[in-house]
């Protein structure tokens, strides 16, 4: 258990989209794609972040959501942040032909997994969605390893005008796939699951919940019978089937349930 916090220096800051920034830093403990770290901005909060780069230097890709994530966006090289982890499970790299479906910043965790799968000899197709063209994340990065990258934007500024989920059925119809990997809003992931199940392709989802301890203790990230921090964040869709909260509700910091 890599639970002891280490203070590291941010070595690089890479603006990815108008609302997303990658921070790179050296952090020794080994990590596998899908795992996350707890990142502390001293004087501010500590947030769970999937690693968008699992080698050296490691990296996290942060989207401006709340106050703390916005503060993380202005962190400059040389700044000190606290890291603990990595925590949680990883993507199983066994599937040979994988469709990767990323919504918004969800692509951050899919990119290193896709790279590892590609190194492992798997063939990939990527479908990436965002609100608008400038918010598409890691299109070039995925383009380096995927046979095809399809994009969708809500406003039609790039690729398909509409949801990325519209692309899933047609892509799966074009060839045999062993797996779909997805990360993004839960409503999106639920649609991905429906489209893939119609073609009997298993889906793996990377989940996000409010987190505090990240050690499977405090219950903040409870999701049905699971704790996302230790039982996830990567869940085969069949494990989510009987979780009534999936794509319907989450818990606030107090533990109170709120509808998504």
């Amino acid at each position: 258990m890599n639970s002891v916090r280490t203070i590291v220096e941010v070595s690089e800051r890479i603006p990815e989209t108008p609302s997303t920034v990658t921070l790179r830093f050296s952090y020794a403990p080994s990590a596998t794609p899908g795992q996350f770290v707890m990142v502390w901005l001293p004087g501010d909060d500590e947030l769970p972040m999937s690693l968008s780069y699992t080698g050296d230097p490691k990296g996290v890709t942060i989207k401006a959501m709340g106050a703390t994530s916005r503060h993380f966006l202005s962190v400059e090289p040389g700044a000190l942040v606290g890291i603990r982890g990595p925590y949680g499970n990883s993507f199983d790299l066994a599937p040979r032909r994988i469709l990767v479906v990323g919504g918004g910043s969800g692509t951050a965790v899919l990119a290193p997994a896709a790279e590892a799968a590609a190194r492992n000899g798997s063939r990939l197709v990527a479908a990436l969605g965002a609100t608008t063209e400038r918010e598409l994340l890691f299109v070039e990065r995925m383009g380096r390893i995927a046979e095809t990258v399809r994009v969708a934007t809500d406003d039609g500024t790039a690729g398909h005008a509409g949801f990325v989920t519209d692309l899933v059925g047609p892509i799966l119809g074009q060839g045999p796939f062993d797996a779909v990997w997805t990360c993004g809003p839960e409503v999106m992931m639920r649609k991905v699951i429906s489209a893939a199940e119609a073609r009997a392709v298993p889906v793996v989802c990377s989940m996000e919940r409010h987190m505090k301890c990240a050690l499977g203790m405090c219950d903040a990230c409870a999701l049905g019978p699971y704790h996302v921090c230790v039982d996830g964040p990567v869940f085969p869709a069949e494990r989510l089937r009987n979780v009534p909260e999936f794509a319907t509700s989450k818990r606030e910091s107090s533990g109170r349930r709120v509808r998504l």
């Binding site: 916090r5 707890m38 502390w40 501010d44 909060d45 500590e46 947030l47 606290g82 505090k212 301890c213 050690l215 405090c218 606030e252 910091s253 107090s254």
Partner: peptide
């Protein structure tokens, strides 16, 4: 809500 992180 409890306190912000770090809480542990």
């Amino acid at each position: 809500d409890g306190y912000p992180n770090p809480t542990i």
